[in-house]
């Protein structure tokens, strides 16, 4: 780890695009990535393998294989798991036991706050703070206040949806240990990955690794911190 950081001149750049090492590989598909790393790095990884490991990552070729494997992982009792795919897969939610997000309720709350803001603002402005007759209409011209209130409802709800999603997902997060696996760059292209984290109660390096091997993946990688 230290070795690699020393080699980097631009830590910032690396944090932003942490998987840059592997990026050139992606378009080629199956070229053996690890060959491209400096030999020292591989040695270093080998020595510290168990101390700084974040988890184990298994690579699959098709979504079906991954979902089947994910079902087995859940049945085996692993909780701190995750899956990575280049597009959303509805089946994986069930397979990993992902609970339905609270986001819709947050958005509803955002919308209600927006509506109240709109109505409150227009009421405050035209009835309380600066009442003035314009166009012969009453101070409290509710029909006229509906369009701006509606727009604010939508605006607040949309903000909640987007920023709620981003924050609940813990983004922006430029660095994540999975990016240390060079082939993980393919997760945004065509490959499917399953992760079991070390934090999991059932995690045991040897045992978990052989369990993951048994799921018939393309390969199982160690993910370093």
């Amino acid at each position: 780890m230290t070795f690699r950081i020393r080699k980097r001149r631009r830590i910032f750049v690396e944090l932003i695009c942490s998987q840059s090492r592997s990026s050139a590989v992606g378009t080629k598909g199956n070229s053996p990535v690890s060959n491209r790393l400096p030999a020292g790095a591989v040695d270093c990884e080998a020595k510290n393998m168990k101390e700084n490991i974040y988890g184990l990552l298994a690579e699959f070729d098709t979504p079906t294989e991954m979902v089947e494997a994910a079902n087995k992982i859940r049945e085996a009792g692993y909780k701190k798991t995750d899956a990575f795919s280049p597009f959303p897969l509805h089946e994986i939610d069930e397979a990993l036991g992902i609970k339905r997000s609270i986001l819709p309720f947050l958005v509803l709350a955002g919308g209600v706050i927006g509506l109240l803001t709109g109505l409150g603002l227009t009421y405050f402005v035209h009835v309380y703070d600066y009442p003035i007759i314009v166009g012969g209409r009453p101070f409290f011209s509710l029909p006229s206040f509906i369009p701006p209130s509606f727009e604010l409802t939508i605006l607040f709800a949309a903000f909640t949806a987007v920023f709620g999603m981003i924050l609940l997902n813990g983004l922006p997060q430029p660095y994540h240990p999975v990016f240390n696996v060079p082939r993980f760059a393919l997760a945004t292209r065509e490959k499917f990955f399953l992760l079991i984290e070390r934090r999991d109660e059932k995690f045991d390096y040897e045992e978990t690794k052989s369990f993951m091997q048994s799921l018939n993946p393309q390969e199982v990688f160690d993910v370093e911190e």
Partner: peptide
């Protein structure tokens, strides 16, 4: 923003995207 295609992220992502679609339609 460090998007990595995590299943948990996709789950919220799809909900947010659908909600945005639902909000954009009346908008």
């Amino acid at each position: 923003m460090g998007w990595r295609g995590s299943a948990r992220h996709w789950h919220r992502y799809e909900i947010a995207y659908l909600l945005l679609a639902g909000l954009s339609t009346p908008l």
